[in-house]
Design a protein around this nucleic acid. Structure first.
Lengths: 229, 229
DNA sequence: ACAAAAGTGTTCATCCTACACCCATGG
DNA sequence: CCATGGGTGTAGGATGAACACTTTTGT
């Protein structure tokens, strides 16, 4: 491909870094790895990698996420481009950050060990390389804002979940407690959850009914103006 | 600077493109230029340019915006990274799009001519090069979302403005009409506008009082949870 | 029987929406 | 004096927040 007039301009290394969120039932977690190469080898880091000539940053993020988790079809969205001149100790690299939401139970523990990956609760993130701390903070803020108007919280839960589990999730994301009755009322009023006959009995004696998110009902409703929790 | 282990990776041309919004009192406008170089020379385009090794994308956007408008201290925020492999006809270029809000009256007409720049109402944007149409659409959506919770509309107005002018602006952004009484009530209740004694008499016989945005009052209030219009 | 979590309604305050007339002034 | 746009208040409906007791069942 002819690069024509562009020849004389600076070319820059472009990376993607992924903030991967999971939920263990109580706390919101981020998946971090021990960085495997210099500089800063051995330090905690987001999973990342370089963007190739023949792939979009979206494709690169998908590839890199799959490398770490073995998972496909993960909810992911572009977060922000971090481009400070000295953000990477080894040279000029701009990074397009992505955040991903995964059901922590689907996560393949086996792959984890190759990269020395570990989940950290968001309030216990260790020191991270470069500007990764800022990336995590930005991702958390984006998640909080987004979850208010979009049904992405379900990405962090198993297919079947109970209302108490869902409420715990929202409480973890918002870092504040919600009223059980108001929460139930609001979420059920949306008409996007289907109640199953089955109960989850592990976490209480009475047991809580399972629900599933009905994407079709949501789409119909989503023509205009959705408000979540 | 040592680029260490990164040497073997692909380097990519990184551009920024600016969606520049202005407001003429009635319609929301975007500032476009006739592209001055190949490929697609002579076609309508967003103002853009390449990011240098020694500058952040923010700095590049500021530089490029200044080149076109001669203006500094412009409200600008990063929009999105567009990175499709074939988005630029002349080769692999990723573009970080920024959107800017300027007071159209401050805009220096002189500079305009160098770049053959012109304002276009948002509903009359001509065909644009590459993926710039998508960029404009994304910027418009972001502006609509952002203006609801953040006092950035004022960036599009002169320092002194009337309530009818402000309402026209919000109507232009939302593409819908607002009730005058409700609008006035809501915006004044925020307590972030200072009324002047002076009236604007050009657009009506009675004249409308000028107001100014009080950034300090806003900051105090902004500790937590602002809702705008 | 009791501990532990699930489930369920009502009241009050607040916010949003709809709506119409008088005012000031330049021509 | 009249045409034009500026300015103002209220009532009804919808939404959000606060709040406590009963149910189920495993131990």
């Amino acid at each position: 491909m002819d690069i024509g007039k562009y020849k004389s301009h600076d070319r820059i290394l472009v990376a993607v870094d992924c903030i991967i969120f999971g939920f263990d039932g109580q706390h919101l977690q981020a998946l971090l790895i021990k960085r495997g190469f210099e500089p800063e080898k051995g330090k905690w880091s987001l999973m990342g990698g370089f963007v190739n000539q023949d792939e979009s940053t979206d494709d690169a993020a998908i590839r890199i996420l799959n490398q770490l988790t073995g998972m496909d079809n993960i909810y992911m969205e572009q977060l922000y481009c971090f481009s400070d001149v000295n953000r990477d100790l080894a040279g000029r690299v701009i990074s397009i950050a992505y955040f991903a939401l995964i059901n922590i139970a689907d996560y393949n523990e086996q792959l984890q060990s190759e990269h020395e990956a570990r989940w950290f609760p968001l309030d216990k993130i260790p020191a991270l390389v470069f500007d990764h701390k800022e990336m995590v903070a930005t991702a958390k803020a984006r998640l909080q804002a987004k979850v208010t108007n979009h049904p992405i919280g379900f990405e962090l839960l198993p297919e079947k979940f109970t209302l108490p589990q869902l409420q715990n999730l929202y409480e973890a994301i918002y870092e504040s407690e919600l009223d059980k009755r108001n929460f139930t009322k609001k979420i059920l009023a949306l008409g996007i959850l289907n109640k199953l006959d089955e109960k989850e009995k592990a976490s209480s004696k009475k047991g809580a009914f399972y629900y599933v998110f009905d994407k079709n009902k949501y789409r119909k409703l989503h023509s205009e103006g959705v408000k979540f929790i």
